[in-house]
Amino acid sequence: MSSFNLYSRGDKVFGIINATLLTLFVLSTLYPFIYIAASSISSGLAVTSGDVLLFPKDITFAAYDRVLSDPVFWTSYANTMFYTIFGTLVSLAIIIPGAYALSRKRLLGRRYLNFFVAFTMWFHAGMIPFFLNIRDLGLLDSRIGILIAFACTAFNIILLRNFFESIPESFEEAAKMDGANEFTLLWKVYIPLSKPALVTIALFCIVARWNGYFWAMVLLRDEDKIPLQVYLKKIIIELNMDDQFASSLINSEYSFETIVAAIIVASIIPVLAVYPYLQKHFNKGIMMGGVKE
């Protein structure tokens, strides 16, 4: 009974080599996460002496106790939640109507307006004029400033505009004959019809807000206002570079390493929680991202 041979021997060898290499790649992608997770629940001593490679050793939650008892950690966590949720809402509130208007053929000066938006993808004033402008607007060290100043990107607008344009005009016409005005049309027809695109853009905004640190670091002075990433930066980069501080922390229960690991785990968990949704949508987003003017 010889079965039908779909692949030659060489092809089978090829398949095995390929699978092996990819397995190695996947493991090397995964390893840092595993190591961080393992060391976050190991004792400081075990980690600093190199006993933790893959599995946790002397399991303890001391590092988490230490991290979670820091009030600044919680403030910054809450701040990030605030910036992420409201920042995304502000973004959508500006992007959706704007992209909708840009997608209407009868809009006066549509070509120029499209250029007006797209031009900012090619040319931007740069860090200093942007900073001075924020300062002149009185938005330094302001939560509102963080919410508004980073609300739009040309990319997201063009992405959504293209999606709106792909919706057949007869939807608009049918709704207009039914008596819809521009607002009901957008709210009751275009937004529901564009759910996949909107979810994608919302996810882009959420990830950008959750992960963004640079401008928050530059613009916010008050420790009460800083988001998680800025806090993380303070702890794990600035202090770690300072080797003496790091070694001063070592005690048998937790060490600087395990504390950093615990912070990292705590800040990644929300990303991991939304990751399945993200994955479902970013493929679509990339496809739509054939951004054209």
């Binding site: 992960n211 930066k233 993200l278």
Partner: peptide
């Protein structure tokens, strides 16, 4: 989807 801060931290 992991922030650069965390990557740098790692």
């Amino acid at each position: 989807f992991i922030s650069v801060v965390i990557v740098a931290g790692m």
